[in-house]
Each structure stands twice: as structure tokens, then as C-alpha cells.
């Protein structure tokens, strides 16, 4: 197995799928000549040419809508947003067009499109460029939503997303592009809607996804080394559909749960996960489920305040100790 970056894993997924299926094409701002704002599409223009790697104007609603039309017409577009913050302009194309056409046409048309780009906070990008869009899309029936945390999952999920006949919102982690990890040399597909246990443990279940998976794993190591608590870390990987079977089974084993997300607490992904747990695992709970999320405020530009707003491993450790009645 090769050890490659999350960025290169996405690049490999795109390349493999474009080689496999000539209906697959890429469209977005600076995806061609510039190799992509985050270099995810590096080298693709050279290999596949201008017909399949299209630079677009700065007009998100326009090229997202164009992608939806191309998908309905039989192509398999991958639309890159420079970040998901800019995709707010394309929300109508994604939510009102892509997510609805299959339903409103009575199944006559499917929309096999992938919208992808980075989400979440990075470093001092301030309120408008640090948002976590996960719940905005996970709320919408008709969409599938992925948020991979590791290079292998990023590659496997993107390939599956491109092959899926429904629109997939693929949210990458802006700070994850340089994360390295083992990726299988052979073809690697990860099913949508299936979570993954990234660390086994007996005492508490930590549910997380994307960047927060790494925070959760860091917390789990601290809990083990300093607090004699063995945490089981569940990586959601897909946010719609959620794999409640996996995290409910884990909570039934550990009796305690901490649900972590980078975004805002109100109506967040964690709210849904907690709801599933309290309903499906009520008789197994030893403590109210704890949530760790970003603070309920617009992201601040100041570095010190940004650090306070985004959850860190200490916050997860504190919540885990709390549900284990160790405080």
C-alpha cells in the first residue's frame, strides 16, 4: 500500500474514474490551467484535454446548473467549488434542481453528478470562508452527502460517488489535503452510507467525521494514556444516509457517547446522531449523550478566538470523562 496525501488520493480517484468512463468530466473555477485552487485536479487537463477538464467563469450558480443539465442529459459531471462557502450561490441548483429532478420527473431522469470542494475552517479565513456546510446538505432528501477523513476513504468514496446515479455532495476537509495515509494499490471503493470504526474501545463511543475524526482519535489516545478510558471512534464518512446501525451498535457496547462535529450545534449533524442514539439505544445508555461542536457564533478572524471556536482534543476528552462520570 502506498502512503499518499488526501489531495493525491482525490486526484487518483478522479483520474481512475475519468479513464474508466469517458462520460466523466470536471468543471469549476481554475480546475484546468491552474491545476485547481488546492491542486486536486493536477495534471488532469494534460491527460484528458479541454473537453473534459473545463475552467469556468466565477459564476457558481451558472456552472452548477450547467452540470445538472449535463447529468440529466447523460454525462457524469464532477463540479468543483473552490470552497463550499462559494457554493451558497449554487444552492438553488443543488437543492432545487439536482435533488428534486428524479422525484419530480417520476423517475424519468436521474442526476448522476458530484459536487465537491473543501469545507470547514482553515486558518484565519474568517466568518464567510470558514463555514461547515455539512448540515445544509445532509438535511436535503434527494442528495447523498460524504465527508471523508482519510486518504483511503476520500479516494474510495469519491469513486463510488462518481458512479452513483444520484447527486452526491462531497465535502472535503480544507485542512486535510496534506494528511497522509495508506491507500490500497488496487481499485478501492467505499460504499456510501457506511460508517467505519477507526479505533476500537469499550468505555465510550466517540462519533466524528472529517477533520474532527483526527481530533477524536487524538482525544482517544489521551483518554487511554492519561485517564484509563478506551474510546471507540466511529467515523461517519457519509452524512446522508447516516449509518446508524454502526454507531448504535457501538453505543450499545460502550453505554456512553460523545458526538463531535466542527460546525454549529443547532440542528447539527450531531443533533441527528444523538437523536438516533437516544431512540435506538435508550436502554443501553449510562449517561446523557454529550455533544462537542464548534461554538454557536460566526467564525472570528483573530487566531486566538478561532482556536476557542473550533473543538479540540481537550474538549473531547472533557466530554468523554463527563459521560464516564469521572469528573
Amino acid at each position: 500500500m502506498a502512503v499518499i496525501t488526501y489531495r493525491d488520493a482525490l486526484n487518483r480517484a478522479l483520474r481512475e474514474e475519468m479513464r474508466r468512463d469517458d462520460r466523466v468530466f470536471i468543471m469549476g473555477e481554475e480546475v484546468g490551467e491552474y491545476d485547481g485552487a488546492y491542486k486536486v485536479t493536477k495534471g488532469l487537463l494534460d491527460e484528458f484535454g479541454e473537453m473534459r477538464v473545463r475552467d469556468t467563469p466565477i459564476a457558481e450558480n451558472g456552472f452548477a446548473g450547467l452540470g445538472v443539465g449535463a447529468a440529466v442529459a447523460g454525462l457524469r459531471p464532477v463540479v468543483e467549488f473552490m470552497t463550499w462557502n462559494f457554493a451558497l450561490l449554487a444552492y438553488d441548483a443543488i437543492v432545487n434542481s439536482a435533488a428534486k429532478i428524479r422525484h419530480m420527473s417520476g423517475g424519468q431522469f436521474t442526476v448522476p453528478i458530484v459536487f465537491r470542494g473543501p469545507g470547514g475552517s482553515a486558518l484565519q479565513l474568517a466568518a464567510q470562508h470558514s463555514q461547515v456546510p455539512d448540515p445544509w446538505y445532509a438535511n436535503i432528501p434527494g442528495l447523498k452527502v460524504c465527508a471523508p477523513a482519510t486518504p483511503a476513504d476520500a479516494m474510495g468514496l469519491l469513486k463510488t460517488a462518481i458512479r452513483d446515479d444520484d447527486p452526491v455532495v462531497f465535502i472535503e476537509g480544507e485542512l486535510l489535503y496534506n494528511v497522509k495515509g495508506e491507500v490500497p494499490d488496487e481499485e478501492h471503493l467505499v460504499p456510501l452510507g457506511v460508517a467505519d470504526i477507526k479505533r476500537a474501545g469499550e468505555d465510550v463511543t466517540i462519533v466524528a467525521h472529517s477533520k474532527m475524526l483526527h481530533v477524536a482519535l487524538q482525544a482517544a489516545e489521551k483518554l487511554s494514556a492519561e485517564h484509563e478510558v478506551e474510546a471507540e471512534v466511529v467515523d461517519l464518512r457519509s452524512l446522508r444516509p447516516l449509518d446508524l446501525d454502526t454507531y448504535v451498535a457501538s453505543v450499545k457496547k460502550t453505554n456512553r457517547a460523545v458526538v463531535v462535529e466542527e460546525g454549529w450545534p443547532v440542528a447539527g449533524i450531531g443533533a441527528q446522531v444523538v437523536d438516533d442514539i437516544q431512540r435506538e439505544a435508550f436502554d443501553y445508555l449510562d449517561a446523557p449523550v454529550a455533544r462537542v461542536s464548534g461554538l454557536d457564533v460566526p467564525m472570528h478572524y483573530a487566531r486566538a478566538l478561532e482556536k476557542i471556536i473550533v473543538p479540540d482534543a481537550d474538549a473531547v476528552v472533557k466530554a468523554a470523562r463527563h459521560v464516564c462520570y469521572l469528573d
Binding site: P265, P288, A290, R291, V292, S293, L295, D296, A304, K307, I308, I309, V310, P311, D312, D314, A315, K318, A319, H322, D327
Partner: peptide, 17 residues
């Protein structure tokens, strides 16, 4: 004796603990 109980969200620790 358990003041965090009512908090829906556990805020992250501030930079200076």
C-alpha cells in the same frame, strides 16, 4: 454539583487553560 449537565455543547478548552 454538576454544572455542565445542562449544557448541550461542551465548549472546547480556551487556549490558556
Amino acid at each position: 454539583g454538576f454544572p455542565e449537565e445542562a449544557d448541550a455543547v461542551v465548549p472546547p478548552a480556551p487556549p490558556e487553560a
